[in-house]
Design a protein around this nucleic acid. Structure first.
Lengths: 342, 342
DNA sequence: CTGAAAGCGCTTACAG
DNA sequence: CTGAAAGCGCTTACAG
């Protein structure tokens, strides 16, 4: 003997019964499609409000073949991670924009090779997918095979015919080089993140190309490669290279992301190096931490918010099968000068 | 004239047709419930593999009245945020554990008062909900009203009868006080985050209680209250209080979270204060940034991973309506000694 | 061990 | 403007 059904168990049928109309009519009132008399509409709407009826999106999805759910896959090499200082920001923007377009979003993190998360999303029949960071070709192929709309954000490689939202990393690398050389630096140490990742590769390229262009030589041993793009790696690398670095006569350093830069800085500070007086430092990304560090880090800001926003807006167009979707313009980075270079 | 249907359009009906059996049989093979001859099973399984059939979770959810989806609502006062250094970690753990139990998770961020995200989750018929951080009573009431299982993680207030996963914040405050006083500090400056939030309130309480207990007086003006728990707030507060602080003869400082501590530290470092030599600092949370800062920050570590793991495991029990679910034990924090106090 | 039938809660033509 | 009917892709008793 139920007193009264609660919102979630209530169906359109019950509303129809109470309103004295058919299910079809209730459905029409809710969707706003098709006509209905004012009288009926008011009655139905009032009942819905009163009983706290919540339409069952699962049932709706089944018939409309549209879930209004999208999946975000964040692939990281080592630890699956949503709280990442860079990717987390993109995720935030995605979440906000998705909500404004009435999409709900499944967030999944996964190791590089696994297809499990992608599989889950397929079974859940997401309307579309956003792939972030490292991507394996097999994951791309797999998803493509199912015909679900998707796009990539800051992926590790370009894939033909796939919409890819990225920063103008080469230009950013150039900006960093310009900033340091304009300040008079001629001997610059560089720590470059994994060159298998598009962004680290292009950032380094833009940086070295500019130096070459203005005729600043790069001393042998001035470029060091990090195998991961982490704080710990930056710290370790600077530590193990310390003797060589000290003897190199460097006056500045550039790292292809903030985390590496910060790690290296921490080691230098522990060796009582004064930053920027003795060594000026420039990073890349502009994670929150860059502004908080002491000294704060000069960096090349990537517009992560715009990345996330564009990702959702474009995915929505793909889902709605809009014609003439143009490839997004690469985002323009921005130099942010802070204490580490002034 | 379709060449061949792709995985997502394929239905159980098509598989049944090709295998020469009924839909029921295919369903049974997939679910593993009910008997089926080896012969039939092999044939069906092979077809599924070959055609890359993916069961439609939407249809399954409709009949089983179970979506295997859960929702995570992260409420923040100012900016909705998934990438938060503390809450993001909890989210990561939730994502990992959820995957291991075959749940997919909707992540939503929302402003404090809005019910919109909760509404969405209701319509999507999530099996359960996890509420993180600030919570308004009206949101709790609203969700309770719908009878969906839910629990809270590090909520701003206790709510009767609601499972709440929290840290032993009072004990953590005590640990911080003990650590500082054991090192001989007697004049300690304190910046306390919003006292409307349970954790900041208890951390302060544990801290001051310990001082009182061992007979260390708290000078007037030694406790300052921050209106938000951010880096910027810590920095600003220290800045505006600088004169008073400098004249106070303090040798140490405690903040009720790392962000505030770090902000205050940055200002002090800019004033050439040597940490820890002149001022020792202790924070709370152990966000990643605490270990990276220079000097690294001594803090009271909250086991965010365990929080996320417990949250999912408990929610799963609630969903499965297990009997005798016991309230989780409050998590024990841990003192992490770093450069800022040694 | 297997199949036919009903039903999950909606939407969408199609009549009226 | 409104209702009856079919159907979305599954699962679950119920017969056989």
């Amino acid at each position: 003997m139920q007193e009264r059904e609660c919102g979630m168990d209530l169906t359109i049928k019950e509303i129809a019964l109470r309103a004295g109309v058919s299910k079809s009519t209730v459905s029409r009132v809710i969707s706003g499609k098709g006509y209905s008399s004012l009288e009926v509409r008011d009655k139905v709407l009032q009942l819905i409000e009163e009983l706290q009826y919540k339409p069952n999106a699962v049932a709706r999805a089944m018939v409309s073949q549209r879930t209004y759910n999208i999946g975000v896959l964040i692939y990281r090499r080592h630890h699956p991670i949503a709280s990442h200082p860079f990717y987390g920001k993109i995720l935030d923007a995605i979440l906000m924009t998705a909500a404004s377009l009435n999409y709900s979003v499944f967030v999944t993190t996964d190791h590089e090779m696994s297809l499990r998360s992608a599989d889950f999303m397929m079974e859940k029949r997401v309307d579309g997918l956003i792939l972030i960071s490292r991507l394996q070709q097999n994951v791309i192929d797999y998803i493509t095979n199912f015909g679900v709309p998707y796009l990539m954000v800051n992926g590790s490689t370009e894939v033909d015919g796939v919409i890819h939202i990225v920063n103008q990393d080469e230009e950013g690398g150039r900006m960093a080089a310009e900033h340091l050389t304009d300040a008079g630096h001629r001997r610059i140490f560089v720590i470059a993140g994994p060159q298998t990742h598009r962004s680290h590769n292009l950032r380094l390229k833009g940086f070295t190309n500019y130096l070459a262009q203005i005729g600043v030589p790069i001393p042998p041993g001035a470029i060091r490669f990090a195998s991961t793009s982490t704080f710990g790696e930056g710290y370790e690398l600077m530590s193990s290279d310390w003797e060589q670095f000290s003897a190199g006569g460097y006056t500045a350093m550039f790292a292809t992301n903030d985390m590496i830069a910060l790690g290296a800085m921490k080691f230098m500070l522990e060796q009582s190096v004064r930053i920027p007086e003795q060594i000026a430092v420039v990073g890349f990304d502009d994670i929150d931490f860059a502004a908080m560090f002491s000294p704060s880090l000069t960096t090349i800001k990537v517009d992560t918010e715009e990345m996330g926003t564009q990702a959702i807006n474009l995915l929505d167009k793909l889902i709605r099968q809009e014609k003439n979707i143009e490839n997004p313009k690469q985002l323009m980075p921005k130099l942010i000068v802070r204490q580490s270079t002034k």
